[in-house]
């Protein structure tokens, strides 16, 4: 029941405020409270090289680059220091299976932290 209801509630709140796309693995806190899924290229790790001279998006010329906005907001919005520290973390690929599910449930169950087995391999191979 909750699993069916919560996505509706979450979307009703997050859509008007952040234009939430219900990816089900919310990273808003680490991206200056700016949703990276609203980037036409859905980039989760920073802006592409196509940002216009006025700071607007390559694809939608009238829209400010999502990552330019995120970077500004990270500095200007009041938020816990740890959220700011997370800004430059490497965010993993989106798990497409979570699309449409509630990120709140996925946060509590830690489902949103599951990554493919290879993702976390660290050996500094360069």
């Amino acid at each position: 029941m909750l699993k069916k209801l919560l996505p509706f509630v979450e979307h009703a709140i997050k859509k008007p405020v952040w234009d939430c796309r219900m990816c089900g693995q919310c990273v808003l806190h680490s991206t200056g409270m700016t949703c990276p899924m609203t980037c036409p290229k859905t980039l989760r790790n920073g802006p592409c090289g196509g940002v216009r001279e006025n700071g607007n998006c390559e694809v939608i010329p009238d829209m400010q680059c999502v990552w330019a906005k995120a970077y500004d907001r990270k500095e200007s919005l009041p938020m816990p220091a740890v959220w700011k520290e997370h800004f430059n973390e490497l965010r993993p690929p989106v798990d497409m299976r979570l699309q449409g599910s509630s990120s709140w449930i996925n946060l509590i169950t830690k489902r949103d932290q599951q990554t493919p087995a290879g993702w976390s391999i660290q050996d500094g191979a360069h």
Binding site: P47, G49, V51, R52, N54, C65, W67, A68, Y71
Partner: peptide
Amino acid sequence: VENAAAPPFDY
């Protein structure tokens, strides 16, 4: 690849 000349510059 990186674009040194596109905003946001510091980022």
